Amino acid sequence: MNEIKIGILTVSDRASAGVYEDLSGQAIISTLKEYISSDWSEVYAVIPDEKELIEETLKDMVDVEECCLVVTTGGTGPAIRDVTPEATEAVCDKMMPGFGELMRQVSLQYVPTAILSRQEAGIRGKALIINLPGKPKSIRECLDAVFPAVPYCIDLLEGPFIECDETVIKPFRPKSK
């Protein structure tokens, strides 16, 4: 059985400088702990909004740490320093536009500014990378929407089998023939 390693990457100038606590990365970790019943470990980092550093960290999490999933938070808005989607695209082999489309659709039910969000998802090697927004409440809303597809996506990438607590979130896997 493959070890399940999940990268959690917070992209924030202020959190990386210690100006405030990284509540967003912690929100991802606590949400995944609720969802996933398999044993897994996190590879966690908080870095500033620097495109090259984001790219290097994503590559390290996938290529060196062998994470099957990397979830980022921050840097997905329209501000000048928001470059997480560009860094994600730069390191991915394939983009998965359905993730961003669904996250924006769900977020629009709560705030009209969701159209300003540029969440992306893509595949690097055998790993799925998902960009989430920066607010903890939005992180949960977006993960609740897209996570049911994540375990099967990782199956298709020949990654580890991720089991979930189906009382919290029910992953979708097609019935085998």
Rank of each mutant, 00 (worst) to 15 (best):
I4G: 02
K5A: 08
I6A: 07
I8A: 05
L9Y: 08
V11Y: 03
S12A: 11
S12L: 09
D13C: 04
R14E: 09
R14G: 14
R14I: 11
S16P: 07
S16W: 01
V19N: 05
Y20P: 12
L23G: 07
L23Y: 02
G25L: 04
G25V: 03
G25W: 00
T31G: 12
E34I: 06
E34R: 14
Y35K: 11
Y35L: 12
I36Q: 02
S37Y: 13
S37E: 13
S37M: 07
D39T: 08
W40N: 04
W40F: 12
W40K: 03
S41P: 09
E42I: 13
V43Q: 15
V43S: 15
A45L: 11
I47P: 00
P48F: 07
D49G: 04
D49E: 12
E52N: 09
E52D: 13
E52C: 05
E52L: 11
E55P: 01
E55C: 03
L58P: 01
L58T: 01
D60P: 02
D60V: 09
M61H: 05
V62P: 00
V62D: 09
D63P: 00
D63K: 10
V64C: 09
V64L: 13
E65A: 14
E66H: 11
C67F: 07
C67W: 05
C68N: 06
L69R: 05
L69D: 05
V70E: 04
G75W: 03
G77V: 00
P78L: 00
R81T: 00
D82G: 05
D82Y: 00
D82M: 02
V83Y: 09
T84C: 00
P85S: 10
E86C: 09
A87M: 01
A87F: 00
T88R: 08
A90G: 04
V91N: 07
V91D: 05
C92E: 10
D93S: 10
M95C: 11
M96P: 03
G98Q: 06
F99Q: 02
F99S: 04
L102C: 10
R104K: 15
S107A: 12
S107P: 04
V111R: 10
V111A: 12
P112S: 15
P112R: 14
T113C: 14
A114S: 15
I115P: 14
I115M: 15
I115C: 15
L116K: 05
L116Q: 13
S117E: 12
E120C: 14
E120G: 12
A121V: 11
G122V: 05
G122D: 08
I123D: 07
R124D: 04
R124F: 09
G125Q: 06
A127S: 08
A127G: 04
I130Y: 07
I130F: 12
I130M: 12
K135F: 07
K135E: 12
P136V: 07
K137R: 14
I139H: 01
I139P: 02
I139G: 01
E141A: 08
C142S: 10
C142F: 03
L143E: 05
L143A: 07
D144C: 04
D144I: 11
A145H: 11
P151C: 13
C153P: 01
C153Q: 15
I154M: 02
L156M: 13
I162Y: 02
I162K: 00
I162L: 03
E166N: 11
T167K: 14
K170E: 08
P171M: 08
F172R: 12
R173I: 08
R173F: 11
S176K: 13
K177P: 14
